[in-house]
Design a protein around this nucleic acid. Structure first.
Lengths: 236, 236
DNA sequence: CGTTTGACACGAACGCTGTTCGTTTCCTAG
DNA sequence: CTAGGAAACGAACAGCGTTCGTGTCAAACG
């Protein structure tokens, strides 16, 4: 046991230990070994210290996860080219990607109102784009709520698929098999449409288009919904 | 500690211990004491047994949670009145409600393809309604994917709000305060639209209307739909 | 009727977790 | 050179999910 007393002077000045260092070490572990392996102890060990030392910079494990989420969101490119629609779509897709790249982080975003500095930058940019699209304040506010919810959910889904459970056959293959053996009388649509349900295709892109189209065609508050496919005439 | 040997004959025939009983005991604990309190040990104690006994009927804690989710979905009313749109809306809202009523259960639905018997009934009904609305197979399949994702996410959000954290002031009030003290130059939209962002209103209903409107106006891939015609022809 | 069987129930334990407490160490200010 | 205060740490606590081997009991069998 006894650590031979490597006087601190001997080591390469050690890692200074700060909130940022801890967050980055956490992201490293998360990406390399998954969410289960991300424990206060593993993070501490990666920084060559004990778990107690982390609590100076991090309130608890949830706080660490939240900080890791916001750090990931720092890598979302905030600007791109094209119409406001295309830029909004690109921003949303990039955010989904940033959240979905690290297992378990998107879940953190789901329950909470965004308050991290980088999350707020994304929200701010989204609001600007929605206003550029001519939406009124209330509709834009609700839209950003809805979009953020979808982004987080899509991030969860993506990270689930990225983290393939190698123990058994792929999740989707198992589900497909289950759908195939369902009683037709009880689940007529699911069984008959089985092929369409598992058909490949870019559902993420389509989902974002659905949301943006829907937002444009569904003003909040006053007007009833234009069910008769009226154009996206968002009258401010 | 020695349990006085209450010969099994003396007890009121004890609880027979089955998967259903375990699931229901789990839901009781979840609703009464929250997700943290839902441990294999607490469930076992509620059934007057030890944790090891549960593993005959339940593979592990995740399996138990999944079973609890599906049990909750059994209470979703599968039919209502009105147009197919109104029925779809009602079904989706009811599913959100069922998931959001129990803390932490909606998260289980997020990552996974629905395979529970009751979840599949909901999906089947949704598909039927979407087909009734005239959608082609692919669009209906993608729509049910998107709707289910939204439903689970909205359920998570709802359950988060229901489970008020009594330790500190309400989460939304804290967020509102944070938004008020944000630097205006860095977050111009968030600060200026702060009032709209926290304005009350039925965002859930609006969100579902957005989704349904968007689905109707956004055919998937190469499907000939009546009101198509908006920009991206898309390949992918 | 006595015996065997096999599924169910359970006590105890393993290895691990997040978090806290009290102490030690080190750098800086006087 | 000393005093002080913040940072780092060692050890421990209570609890977790899960497994193993043993007990127990009702039904099946000879």
């Amino acid at each position: 046991m006894s650590t031979p007393p490597i006087s601190r002077r001997a080591r390469p000045s050690k890692a200074p230990l700060s909130r940022d260092v801890i967050v980055r070490a956490g992201l490293d572990i998360l990406d390399r070994d998954g969410l289960e392996a991300l424990t206060m102890r593993s993070v501490a060990k990666a920084l060559d210290t004990g778990p107690a030392s982390l609590y100076v910079y991090v309130a608890n494990r949830d706080d660490l996860l939240a900080a890791m989420l916001d750090e990931s969101l720092a890598r979302v490119p905030l600007s791109s080219e094209g119409t406001w629609r295309e830029r909004l779509h690109a921003l949303a897709a990039a955010t989904v990607d940033a959240m979905g790249r690290h297992e378990g982080l998107a879940v953190v975003a789901l329950g909470a109102i965004p308050t991290g500095t980088n999350a707020l930058l994304v929200v701010d940019r989204m609001l600007a784009l929605l206003k550029e699209g001519g939406l009124d304040d209330i509709t834009a506010a609700w839209a950003v709520d809805l979009l953020y919810l979808h982004i987080a959910a899509a991030g969860v889904e993506q990270s689930t698929y990225n983290t393939q459970d190698a123990t058994e056959g792929s999740t989707v293959a198992m589900a497909e098999a289950r759908y195939a053996n369902l009683p037709e009388d009880r689940y007529p649509m699911v069984t008959s449409m089985r092929r369409a349900l598992f058909a490949p295709g870019d559902r993420d892109t389509w989902g974002l288009r659905v949301l943006i189209n829907g937002i444009l065609g569904t003003p909040a508050e006053g007007a009833p919904d234009p069910s008769a496919g009226d154009g996206p005439g968002a009258s401010a």
